[in-house]
């Protein structure tokens, strides 16, 4: 199987008054296409930071990061942004939907930045609404949905650009167990049927075990 991303000695730190604080330290990772990875570790161990760096939302200070064969550490901001927007989907614990937009508009939002025509966008949105069984909710605003439904919309939004990699930061953290189960079912389905590579950050042992392997972080280092 092809390698989707690979890091070598990836390190990130911030300097504050008490000296240098390492957020990530010497991370060496190789993830193959189609893998379902769970990242675990206590609060402050660097899980979210790792996810943000892999998703190119954040930068790192040292080391190398190769994404689908491209050396991210040498790319310019604009090239990184292109790489990110065509290949990576994000899912957040707090859903991060735009309050002023309807469900359909929220899902459509990423396509606006792909230069897609209106007709194609509408078709794509209709498609995914159908697939997620939320056609009836398309004109509602996020505030009118339950947490599980909002996260469903968040996942739909992440998937509409057909990403190679799905990054999920505690996707079930704000949900009750039943809703959480449903979301995890969906992840497995996406991973197995559509071959989407998934990296999820989670606190739950049970959810973590749904993945192919678990990476454990402590103080910015991979311990397992």
């Amino acid at each position: 199987m092809n390698t989707i991303l690979k890091t070598k000695h990836l390190t990130k730190w911030v300097d504050n008054s008490s000296g240098r604080v390492f957020l990530l330290r010497d991370i060496n990772l190789e993830i193959k296409q189609g893998e379902f990875i769970s990242v675990m570790g206590p609060s402050g161990s660097g899980k979210s930071t790792l996810l943000n760096v892999l998703g190119m939302l954040d930068t790192f200070n040292e080391g190398e990061y190769e994404f689908i064969g491209q050396p991210v550490h040498t790319l310019k901001e604009r090239q990184r942004s292109e790489l990110h927007k065509h290949n990576i989907g994000f899912i957040f614990q707090a859903y991060h939907l735009i309050d002023e937009l309807t469900v359909a508009e929220n899902i459509e939002a990423p396509l606006l930045y792909h230069g897609m025509k209106q007709k194609e966008r509408q078709a794509a949105v209709a498609d995914i609404l159908d697939r997620f069984n939320i056609v009836g909710k398309k004109d509602l605003f996020p505030a009118q949905l339950s947490g599980g439904q909002q996260q469903l919309v968040g996942i739909a939004r992440a998937l509409i650009v057909k990403p190679k990699l799905l990054l999920a930061d505690e996707p079930t953290g704000n949900l009750n167990s039943k809703q959480g189960e449903e979301i995890m079912e969906l992840f497995n389905k996406l991973n197995e049927e559509d071959g989407v590579t998934i990296i999820q950050v989670t606190h739950s042992e049970k959810n973590a075990n749904r993945g192919d392997r678990i990476i454990e972080l402590l103080d910015g280092r991979i311990v397992k």
Binding site: S81, F90, H96, I98, D99
Partner: peptide, 16 residues
Amino acid sequence: TKEIGIRKVLGASVGN
């Protein structure tokens, strides 16, 4: 601020 952040995650450029 938050909306702008989300949009950037969704792929919006500075120009957008």
